[in-house]
Design a protein around this nucleic acid. Structure first.
Length: 483
DNA sequence: TCTGGCACTTA
DNA sequence: TTAAGTGCCAG
C-alpha cells in the first residue's frame, strides 16, 4: 500500500518533483550509493490520461545487490512476504484521477532451476504455471495524488507454493524464476477497469526477478531484513548458534547461508561479478542516467542469472479522468530497512501530505468498512497475445478478500465480460485471463523504439480493450531475445 | 525438496 | 504483551 511508514511528499507538482529527482539522481547515487530513485523512462508515446507516468523502484540498489548474486524468494505454504519488498514511487499521474495499482508475478522463462555447485543452473523445463493471481494494492482505487504522495508498497504481498492457497497469495513453483510486474490501471467511475477505453501501463524491473525457493536464503537477506536480525553474525550470536548446533552434532556446523555467502564473495557462484556484495556503489555506473534517465545497457554479465529482458515495459491506453478527493496525509515516513537508502529517502521525501500541498480535500479515500486489504485475482486462461493486454491483467471471475473487494472487483471484472462471484467470498479462486506465458513472450518485438529508460522494461502500447485489438506503440526491441 | 518448530525480531 | 514475520535447522 502506500504505506504510512513510507510517506513522502513531492516538493512541487509531480512533474517538478520528478525533474528534481532526475536532476538529483546521479548525485544521489554517487553520494550514498542509493539507487532506489532510479527513474523510469521518459514516456515517448503520449496518450491522453496516461502520458508521463513514471515508476521508480524503491531500494533499487538493494534489489541490484540481490540480483547480482541471484535473488531468491522464500515461498511457504502459509505465504511469505517478499524481501526486499516491492516498493515504487510513481509520478506523472493525474492527481485527481483514480488509479488501480496491481502487481503480479509471471514466469521469467521456461526453465526449472537447481542450485548445485554453488550456482543456479537450468535443470529442465518449467512446470506449468500456477493460476495467475493479481495482487491489487489495498489502497486501490485511489487518486493519482494519493499514489504519488508516498511510496507505494507491495510489501504485504505474499508468495506461496500452496497450489490450493485459499488466501489469495500469489502461487509460485519452487525453483522457478519469476518476474514481478506493476500495473497501473486508470479507473474512474464511468469507465472503469474493463471498459474498452481503460488505460493502463505495466512496469517491469528486471532486477526484481527472483527464483522461488523453499530454502536457501543468502546472507544478504539476513543482513538487510530486520526480522532476521537474530541470524546476523555478531560474535555472541554466532557463538550461541554454534554452541546450539554443536550441542546436537559431533562435528562443526557451518550454516548453509554462510557457506553460500562466503562462496559468493570470493568467487561468484552465479557467474557474475561479486564485488557488489561489498561495494554499495557498484551499481551507480551500471545505472547511470542520461538526464536522469538510466541507461538501458545494463551488463547482463553481472546478473546472477540471465534475464530475458533488460528493459521496462509500459502499456498505455486512453482513458478519461475521474475526480476524487485524496486521502489526507496521515502517514509518517519511516526509515527503510536499508540505511543506505534512508538518507536518500529523507532527501526526496518529506512527511507532508502532497494532497495538502495541492490544496486537495483531506477526506481519506477509505471504504466504509474500515481497513482495506489487498485482494488477489487469478487467471486460468492464457492470452496468446504477445503483449500483455489489459485482459492479461483482468479476470474472468473474481473474489474478494475484504469488503472492499466488492466494488473494485465488480468494476474490474467488467473487462473480461465475466460475472463476478459474491463479494467477500474470500476463499473463491479467481480465474482470469492473465497471461502466464514466460515473460519474454509477452511483448511483441516489433515497433521497437529505444527508450531512454534504465533497467526497467519500457513497453508502451495503446490499448482500447477491445479484445485483441491494440497496437504496439512502444516496444523495446530485445524483449524476446534473452529468453 | 519440503515442512514444522525454533529463537529471534519488529511493530 | 502479543502478533506477525524472519531464516535456520532437523527430519
Amino acid at each position: 500500500m502506500a504505506d504510512s511508514e513510507d510517506t513522502f511528499r513531492l516538493q512541487n507538482s509531480p512533474s517538478d518533483s520528478e525533474s528534481k529527482d532526475l536532476q538529483n539522481e546521479g548525485k544521489s547515487e554517487k553520494q550514498n550509493g542509493a539507487a532506489s530513485k532510479s527513474p523510469s523512462s521518459q514516456t515517448t508515446y503520449i496518450q491522453q490520461g496516461m502520458e508521463g507516468i513514471k515508476v521508480y523502484l524503491h531500494e533499487r540498489e538493494l534489489w541490484a545487490k540481490f540480483h547480482e548474486v541471484g535473488t531468491e524468494m522464500i515461498i511457504t505454504k502459509a505465504g511469505r512476504r517478499m524481501f526486499p519488498s516491492f516498493k515504487v514511487k510513481v509520478t506523472g499521474l493525474n492527481p485527481k484521477t483514480k488509479y488501480i495499482l496491481l502487481m503480479d508475478v509471471v514466469p521469467a522463462d521456461d526453465h526449472r532451476y537447481k542450485f548445485a555447485d554453488n550456482k543456479w543452473s537450468v535443470t529442465g523445463k518449467a512446470e506449468p504455471a500456477m493460476p495467475g493471481r493479481l495482487y491489487v494494492h489495498p489502497d486501490s482505487p485511489a487518486t493519482g495524488a494519493h499514489w504519488m504522495r508516498q511510496l507505494v508498497s507491495f510489501q504485504k504481498l505474499k508468495l506461496t507454493n500452496n497450489h490450493l492457497d485459499p488466501f489469495g497469495h500469489i502461487i509460485l513453483n519452487s525453483m522457478h524464476k519469476y518476474q514481478p510486474r506493476i500495473h497501473i490501471v486508470k479507473a474512474d467511475e464511468n469507465n472503469g477497469f474493463g471498459s474498452k477505453n481503460t488505460a493502463f501501463c505495466t512496469h517491469v524491473f528486471p532486477e526484481t526477478a527472483f527464483i522461488a525457493v523453499t530454502s536457501y536464503i543468502t546472507q544478504l537477506k539476513i543482513e538487510n531484513n530486520p526480522f532476521a536480525k537474530g541470524f546476523r553474525g555478531s560474535d555472541d550470536m554466532e557463538l550461541h548458534r554454534m554452541s546450539r548446533m554443536q550441542s546436537t552434532k559431533e562435528y562443526p556446523v557451518v550454516p548453509r547461508s554462510t557457506v553460500r555467502q562466503r562462496v559468493g564473495t570470493s568467487a561468484s557462484p552465479f557467474g557474475g561479478d561479486v564485488q557488489v556484495l561489498s561495494s554499495p556503489g557498484v551499481m551507480s555506473s551500471q545505472y547511470s542516467c542520461e538526464n536522469g534517465v538510466s541507461s538501458s545497457t545494463q551488463s547482463q554479465s553481472q546478473s546472477a542469472y540471465p534475464l530475458p529482458h533488460e528493459h521496462r515495459q509500459d502499456y498505455h491506453c486512453i482513458k478519461r479522468k475521474a475526480e476524487d478527493d485524496c486521502p489526507a496525509g496521515e502517514h509518517s515516513y519511516k526509515k527503510s530497512y536499508v540505511e543506505s537508502s534512508s538518507s536518500e529517502d529523507d532527501h526526496y521525501y518529506r512527511p507532508v501530505s502532497y494532497s495538502q500541498a495541492l490544496g486537495l480535500s483531506g477526506a481519506p479515500y477509505r471504504p466504509e468498512s474500515g481497513q482495506r486489504q489487498a485482494c488477489m485475482y487469478a487467471s486460468a486462461s492464457q492470452s496468446s497475445d504477445p503483449v500483455p493486454s489489459l485482459e492479461d491483467i483482468s479476470c474472468n471471475t473474481w473474489t474478494g478478500v475484504s469488503p472492499y473487494a466488492g466494488p473494485l472487483v465488480s468494476r474490474l471484472s467488467g473487462v473480461s465480460g465475466h460475472a463476478s462471484p459474491q463479494l467477500g467470498d474470500a476463499h473463491s479462486m479467481y480465474q482470469s485471463s492473465m497471461s502466464h506465458q514466460p515473460l519474454g513472450r509477452q511483448c511483441s518485438p516489433s515497433a521497437g523504439i529505444q527508450s531512454p529508460t534504465g533497467n526497467e522494461y519500457l513497453y508502451t502500447h495503446t490499448h482500447t480493450l477491445s479484445p485483441h485489438q491494440y497496437h504496439t506503440v512502444h516496444v523495446m526491441p530485445d524483449w524476446n531475445e534473452a529468453s
